[in-house]
Protein backbone atom coordinates (compact mmCIF):
# COMPACT_ATOMS: atom_id res chain seq x y z
CA UNK A 1 0.00 0.00 0.00
CA UNK A 2 2.98 2.28 0.39
CA UNK A 3 2.47 4.09 -2.88
CA UNK A 4 -1.29 3.86 -3.13
CA UNK A 5 -3.17 7.10 -3.48
CA UNK A 6 -5.33 8.38 -0.65
CA UNK A 7 -8.32 7.44 -2.74
CA UNK A 8 -7.16 3.85 -3.13
CA UNK A 9 -6.46 3.67 0.58
CA UNK A 10 -9.90 4.96 1.46
CA UNK A 11 -11.48 2.55 -0.98
CA UNK A 12 -9.76 -0.44 0.63
CA UNK A 13 -10.83 0.61 4.11
CA UNK A 14 -14.32 1.28 2.79
CA UNK A 15 -14.50 -2.15 1.24
CA UNK A 16 -13.66 -3.71 4.57
CA UNK A 17 -16.18 -1.48 6.33
CA UNK A 18 -19.00 -2.31 3.90
CA UNK A 19 -18.25 -6.02 3.89
CA UNK A 20 -18.05 -6.26 7.65
CA UNK A 21 -21.28 -4.26 8.05
CA UNK A 22 -23.21 -6.40 5.60
CA UNK A 23 -21.87 -9.61 7.10
CA UNK A 24 -23.48 -8.87 10.43
CA UNK A 25 -27.21 -9.18 9.91
CA UNK A 26 -27.70 -9.22 13.68
CA UNK A 27 -26.44 -5.67 13.74
CA UNK A 28 -28.16 -4.25 10.68
CA UNK A 29 -31.53 -6.00 10.77
CA UNK A 30 -32.69 -4.33 14.01
CA UNK A 31 -31.46 -1.02 12.58
CA UNK A 32 -33.79 -1.60 9.64
CA UNK A 33 -36.81 -3.18 11.34
CA UNK A 34 -37.06 -1.31 14.61
CA UNK A 35 -37.60 2.15 13.07
CA UNK A 36 -40.27 0.72 10.78
CA UNK A 37 -42.05 -0.80 13.73
CA UNK A 38 -42.00 2.48 15.59
CA UNK A 39 -43.30 4.44 12.63
CA UNK A 40 -46.05 1.85 12.09
CA UNK A 41 -47.17 2.21 15.70
CA UNK A 42 -47.04 5.98 15.65
CA UNK A 43 -48.79 6.24 12.28
CA UNK A 44 -51.72 4.44 13.79
CA UNK A 45 -51.44 5.64 17.38
CA UNK A 46 -51.02 9.31 16.60
CA UNK A 47 -53.26 9.52 13.54
CA UNK A 48 -55.66 11.57 15.65
CA UNK A 49 -53.07 14.36 15.66
CA UNK A 50 -53.77 15.01 11.97
CA UNK A 51 -57.18 16.36 13.08
CA UNK A 52 -55.45 19.25 14.83
CA UNK A 53 -56.01 22.51 13.01
CA UNK A 54 -52.96 23.45 10.94
CA UNK A 55 -51.50 19.92 10.73
CA UNK A 56 -49.72 19.83 7.36
CA UNK A 57 -51.04 16.48 6.10
CA UNK A 58 -53.96 14.21 6.76
CA UNK A 59 -51.79 11.09 6.93
CA UNK A 60 -49.63 10.69 10.00
CA UNK A 61 -47.63 8.02 8.16
CA UNK A 62 -46.58 10.58 5.55
CA UNK A 63 -45.68 12.94 8.36
CA UNK A 64 -43.71 10.41 10.41
CA UNK A 65 -41.87 8.57 7.65
CA UNK A 66 -38.90 10.91 8.05
CA UNK A 67 -38.23 9.54 11.53
CA UNK A 68 -36.85 6.11 10.48
CA UNK A 69 -34.19 7.89 8.43
CA UNK A 70 -32.90 9.52 11.59
CA UNK A 71 -33.39 6.48 13.76
CA UNK A 72 -31.48 4.18 11.46
CA UNK A 73 -28.91 6.97 11.15
CA UNK A 74 -28.45 6.81 14.91
CA UNK A 75 -28.07 3.05 14.74
CA UNK A 76 -25.37 3.43 12.11
CA UNK A 77 -23.75 6.13 14.20
CA UNK A 78 -23.53 3.65 17.07
CA UNK A 79 -22.38 0.81 14.84
CA UNK A 80 -19.74 2.89 13.11
CA UNK A 81 -18.53 4.24 16.43
CA UNK A 82 -18.47 0.81 18.01
CA UNK A 83 -16.55 -0.58 15.05
CA UNK A 84 -13.96 2.15 15.30
CA UNK A 85 -13.68 1.79 19.07
CA UNK A 86 -13.21 -1.94 18.64
CA UNK A 87 -10.58 -1.34 16.00
CA UNK A 88 -8.80 0.85 18.52
CA UNK A 89 -9.14 -1.78 21.25
CA UNK A 90 -7.97 -4.70 19.14
CA UNK A 91 -4.99 -2.84 17.81
CA UNK A 92 -6.24 -2.80 14.23
CA UNK A 93 -5.79 0.95 14.29
CA UNK A 94 -2.23 0.55 15.47
CA UNK A 95 -1.62 -1.70 12.51
CA UNK A 96 -3.12 0.96 10.24
CA UNK A 97 -0.95 3.55 11.94
CA UNK A 98 2.14 1.65 10.85
CA UNK A 99 1.11 1.98 7.21
CA UNK A 100 1.50 5.32 5.46
CA UNK A 101 -2.26 5.74 5.23
CA UNK A 102 -3.60 9.25 5.87
CA UNK A 103 -5.97 9.88 8.73
CA UNK A 104 -8.58 11.42 6.47
CA UNK A 105 -8.51 8.41 4.16
CA UNK A 106 -8.82 6.12 7.15
CA UNK A 107 -11.90 7.86 8.49
CA UNK A 108 -13.50 8.38 5.10
CA UNK A 109 -13.03 4.70 4.44
CA UNK A 110 -14.48 3.68 7.75
CA UNK A 111 -17.56 5.70 6.87
CA UNK A 112 -18.10 3.75 3.65
CA UNK A 113 -20.24 1.14 5.35
CA UNK A 114 -22.36 3.79 7.02
CA UNK A 115 -23.11 5.60 3.78
CA UNK A 116 -23.96 2.41 1.90
CA UNK A 117 -26.25 1.37 4.73
CA UNK A 118 -27.91 4.80 4.88
CA UNK A 119 -28.64 4.84 1.15
CA UNK A 120 -29.89 1.26 1.20
CA UNK A 121 -32.17 1.78 4.19
CA UNK A 122 -33.45 5.11 2.85
CA UNK A 123 -34.53 3.37 -0.34
CA UNK A 124 -36.25 0.62 1.62
CA UNK A 125 -38.11 3.11 3.82
CA UNK A 126 -39.27 5.00 0.76
CA UNK A 127 -40.51 1.88 -1.01
CA UNK A 128 -42.15 0.32 2.07
CA UNK A 129 -43.64 3.65 3.17
CA UNK A 130 -45.21 4.43 -0.18
CA UNK A 131 -46.47 0.85 -0.46
CA UNK A 132 -48.07 1.27 2.97
CA UNK A 133 -49.96 4.33 1.78
CA UNK A 134 -47.65 7.27 2.37
CA UNK A 135 -47.63 10.05 -0.14
CA UNK A 136 -44.46 11.39 -1.77
CA UNK A 137 -45.57 14.92 -2.45
CA UNK A 138 -42.32 16.20 -3.96
CA UNK A 139 -42.82 13.94 -6.94
CA UNK A 140 -40.82 11.08 -8.46
CA UNK A 141 -38.17 13.48 -9.74
CA UNK A 142 -37.24 14.24 -6.14
CA UNK A 143 -36.39 10.61 -5.31
CA UNK A 144 -32.66 11.09 -6.03
CA UNK A 145 -32.74 14.07 -3.68
CA UNK A 146 -34.21 11.92 -0.94
CA UNK A 147 -31.58 9.22 -1.46
CA UNK A 148 -28.82 11.82 -1.47
CA UNK A 149 -30.14 13.35 1.72
CA UNK A 150 -30.41 9.90 3.34
CA UNK A 151 -26.77 9.24 2.48
CA UNK A 152 -25.72 12.67 3.74
CA UNK A 153 -27.54 12.16 7.05
CA UNK A 154 -25.92 8.76 7.49
CA UNK A 155 -22.53 10.31 6.76
CA UNK A 156 -23.07 13.23 9.14
CA UNK A 157 -24.28 11.05 11.99
CA UNK A 158 -21.55 8.53 11.22
CA UNK A 159 -18.97 11.30 11.71
CA UNK A 160 -20.47 12.07 15.11
CA UNK A 161 -20.09 8.39 16.01
CA UNK A 162 -16.49 8.35 14.79
CA UNK A 163 -15.69 11.42 16.81
CA UNK A 164 -17.10 9.98 20.04
CA UNK A 165 -15.42 6.63 19.40
CA UNK A 166 -12.06 8.23 18.65
CA UNK A 167 -12.35 10.20 21.86
CA UNK A 168 -13.42 7.37 24.19
CA UNK A 169 -11.75 4.46 22.39
CA UNK A 170 -13.93 1.95 24.23
CA UNK A 171 -16.65 -0.01 22.48
CA UNK A 172 -18.68 -0.57 25.63
CA UNK A 173 -18.75 3.10 26.50
CA UNK A 174 -19.68 3.77 22.89
CA UNK A 175 -22.66 1.43 23.17
CA UNK A 176 -23.80 3.03 26.38
CA UNK A 177 -24.09 6.44 24.72
CA UNK A 178 -27.12 5.17 22.83
CA UNK A 179 -29.80 6.80 25.04
CA UNK A 180 -28.04 10.13 24.64
CA UNK A 181 -28.41 10.09 20.87
CA UNK A 182 -32.00 8.99 21.06
CA UNK A 183 -32.68 12.01 23.21
CA UNK A 184 -31.74 14.18 20.26
CA UNK A 185 -34.33 12.40 18.21
CA UNK A 186 -37.10 12.56 20.79
CA UNK A 187 -36.53 16.22 21.65
CA UNK A 188 -36.97 17.35 18.08
CA UNK A 189 -39.93 18.13 15.84
CA UNK A 190 -40.26 14.41 15.26
CA UNK A 191 -43.85 13.99 16.49
CA UNK A 192 -45.48 17.36 15.91
CA UNK A 193 -44.59 20.20 13.53
CA UNK A 194 -42.33 22.62 15.30
CA UNK A 195 -44.73 25.62 15.30
CA UNK A 196 -47.44 23.41 16.82
CA UNK A 197 -45.41 22.29 19.83
CA UNK A 198 -47.40 23.63 22.75
CA UNK A 199 -44.78 23.86 25.50
CA UNK A 200 -42.37 26.73 24.94
CA UNK A 201 -39.36 24.99 26.49
CA UNK A 202 -39.83 21.97 24.27
CA UNK A 203 -40.22 24.12 21.15
CA UNK A 204 -37.03 25.98 22.06
CA UNK A 205 -35.08 22.74 22.42
CA UNK A 206 -36.49 21.42 19.16
CA UNK A 207 -35.48 24.66 17.43
CA UNK A 208 -31.90 24.42 18.67
CA UNK A 209 -31.70 20.71 17.94
CA UNK A 210 -30.12 20.12 14.51
CA UNK A 211 -32.00 16.82 14.22
CA UNK A 212 -35.24 18.80 13.74
CA UNK A 213 -33.89 20.24 10.50
CA UNK A 214 -32.80 16.86 9.18
CA UNK A 215 -36.27 15.49 9.86
CA UNK A 216 -37.96 18.54 8.34
CA UNK A 217 -35.86 18.24 5.17
CA UNK A 218 -36.95 14.67 4.58
CA UNK A 219 -40.50 15.31 5.74
CA UNK A 220 -40.82 18.16 3.24
CA UNK A 221 -40.14 15.73 0.42
CA UNK A 222 -42.78 13.28 1.65
CA UNK A 223 -45.45 15.91 2.26
CA UNK A 224 -44.52 18.07 -0.71
CA UNK A 225 -44.43 20.19 -2.68
CA UNK A 226 -40.68 20.42 -3.19
CA UNK A 227 -39.36 23.08 -0.78
CA UNK A 228 -35.82 24.07 -1.66
CA UNK A 229 -35.48 26.14 1.50
CA UNK A 230 -35.91 23.33 4.02
CA UNK A 231 -33.86 21.01 1.80
CA UNK A 232 -31.00 23.48 1.70
CA UNK A 233 -31.09 23.78 5.47
CA UNK A 234 -31.05 19.98 5.86
CA UNK A 235 -28.08 19.57 3.52
CA UNK A 236 -26.40 22.50 5.24
CA UNK A 237 -26.80 20.87 8.66
CA UNK A 238 -25.38 17.64 7.24
CA UNK A 239 -22.41 19.47 5.78
CA UNK A 240 -21.75 21.33 9.01
CA UNK A 241 -22.01 18.21 11.18
CA UNK A 242 -19.75 16.31 8.79
CA UNK A 243 -17.15 19.06 8.68
CA UNK A 244 -17.07 19.63 12.45
CA UNK A 245 -17.06 16.02 13.56
CA UNK A 246 -14.85 14.69 10.79
CA UNK A 247 -12.21 17.23 11.75
CA UNK A 248 -12.67 16.41 15.39
CA UNK A 249 -12.49 12.67 14.71
CA UNK A 250 -9.34 13.07 12.60
CA UNK A 251 -7.71 15.08 15.38
CA UNK A 252 -8.67 12.63 18.10
CA UNK A 253 -7.59 9.69 16.03
CA UNK A 254 -4.35 11.43 15.16
CA UNK A 255 -3.63 11.94 18.83
CA UNK A 256 -4.38 8.28 19.44
CA UNK A 257 -2.18 7.05 16.61
CA UNK A 258 0.64 9.27 17.70
CA UNK A 259 0.83 11.48 14.66
Amino acid sequence: MAHASAFDQAREIARRSVVSTMRRPAQIVPALIFPMFLVAINASGLDAATKLPGFPTDSYLTFALAVPFIQSGIFSLLNAGTDLARDIETGFMDRMALTPISRAALIAGELGGVIVQGVLFGTIYLVVGVAAGSGFGAGAAAVPLLILLAGSIALALGCVGMFVAARVGDSEVMQSTFPLFFMFMFFSSMAIPRPMIEKDWFRTIATINPVSYLIEGIRGLFIGPLDWGSLAIAFGVCAALTAIFLTGAARALGARLGR
Binding site: L46, F187, F202
Partner: peptide, 14 residues
Amino acid sequence: AFAGGLSRVQHVPG
Protein backbone atom coordinates in the same frame (compact mmCIF):
# COMPACT_ATOMS: atom_id res chain seq x y z
CA ALA B 1 -40.41 13.81 25.78
CA PHE B 2 -44.02 12.66 25.56
CA ALA B 3 -45.64 15.01 28.03
CA GLY B 4 -43.62 17.95 26.76
CA GLY B 5 -43.59 17.36 23.04
CA LEU B 6 -47.05 15.98 22.41
CA SER B 7 -49.28 18.05 24.68
CA ARG B 8 -50.96 19.65 21.66
CA VAL B 9 -52.62 16.29 21.07
CA GLN B 10 -54.99 16.91 23.97
CA HIS B 11 -56.80 19.42 21.79
CA VAL B 12 -57.83 16.75 19.33
CA PRO B 13 -61.63 16.52 19.38
CA GLY B 14 -62.68 13.59 21.57
